[in-house]
Amino acid sequence: MRLSVALISLAALAACETPVPNSGAGVGFGSYAEYQAEREAQLIASGEGRGAGGATSGLDTQAISAEATAAINAAENAAAAPSTTASGPAPAAVSNAVGISAENDFSAVSSERSIEEDAALVAANKEAYVTIQPTALPSRPTSDAGTIVEFALSTTNTVGQALYSRLIPGAESRAARNCAKYPSPDLAQEYFLKNGGPEKNPQGLDPDGDGFACSWDPAPFRLAARR
């Protein structure tokens, strides 16, 4: 009974099994053996079939190796060649146009003098070096600017308004000659006050007797004091 059931099951499985498709079908051959036989015939006809020893001659490995080497060399040459763009060849590398000075270039210095000569030059420069010791500052020259300021503020008369008697013939021409010796009216007024003015008239600098030498004007000092 068990044997009958087993046989029935095997028969059912065999009926349900999907048939394996023929790999040679659909390419013009009834089976793969026919395709292989036809392909072998084509290889033999073209001289690429089996050799005398029965082995397939295959591809020429030496020819492949030579072609591969040539392709590699061509690729390396293309990589080493400078690339070009649509605007033209690649710009040349920018070099340092300024460079370094001859004193910092060993090759330039060595062509001009030897190491011994260079050492002698350094020693000569050290010998010529002079250290200047500091000295005391010079004294500031004194000025009587304060004197003329004080005098300007102590007076009220204007230029040309006589306060002092000056009865000297040719006083105007003498004053013109002597006033020309001073760079400015302020310096003339300083000298005038230091040497007895305004009561006296040293060098005839105040011919009109207003107390102001060489047309010196006290107005700016008076105006500054009022501000």
Rank of each mutant, 00 (worst) to 15 (best):
D210N: 05
N125G: 13
F221G: 00
F106W: 08
A102C: 07
V98K: 06
A75C: 11
E40T: 06
A66N: 12
S173I: 15
L10G: 14
T18Y: 05
L59E: 06
G170R: 02
S165D: 12
A119M: 14
P138Y: 03
G49L: 04
C214F: 01
E40G: 11
A55M: 05
A219Y: 03
Y32V: 15
E40V: 01
V5Y: 06
T131V: 15
D208P: 03
Y129H: 09
C179K: 08
S215Q: 07
D217L: 00
F151K: 02
F106P: 01
L121S: 09
A86Y: 10
A176T: 14
A80Q: 12
E190D: 12
A225R: 02
V149N: 05
E34I: 06
A124H: 06
A86Q: 08
T142R: 11
A12G: 11
G28T: 07
L193D: 03
T131S: 12
L153K: 05
C214E: 00
A79W: 07
A180M: 06
I44D: 10
D105G: 03
L205E: 02
S154I: 01
N157K: 06
A124T: 13
Q62V: 06
E199N: 11
L153D: 02
A136K: 08
G28Q: 05
N178H: 13
P134Y: 00
N73L: 14
S101Y: 03
V27T: 12
S143Y: 14
L167Y: 10
A176L: 12
A145L: 15
L13S: 14
S139C: 04
V130T: 14
Y164E: 01
E190G: 13
G160P: 15
T56W: 14
G24D: 04
A175I: 03
V109K: 03
A136G: 10
G51K: 05
A6Q: 09
I132P: 01
P91N: 10
P220D: 07
S114F: 02
A81L: 03
A224I: 10
P138D: 11
P220A: 13
V5F: 08
A152N: 01
D206T: 08
A128W: 01
A80R: 09
S57L: 15
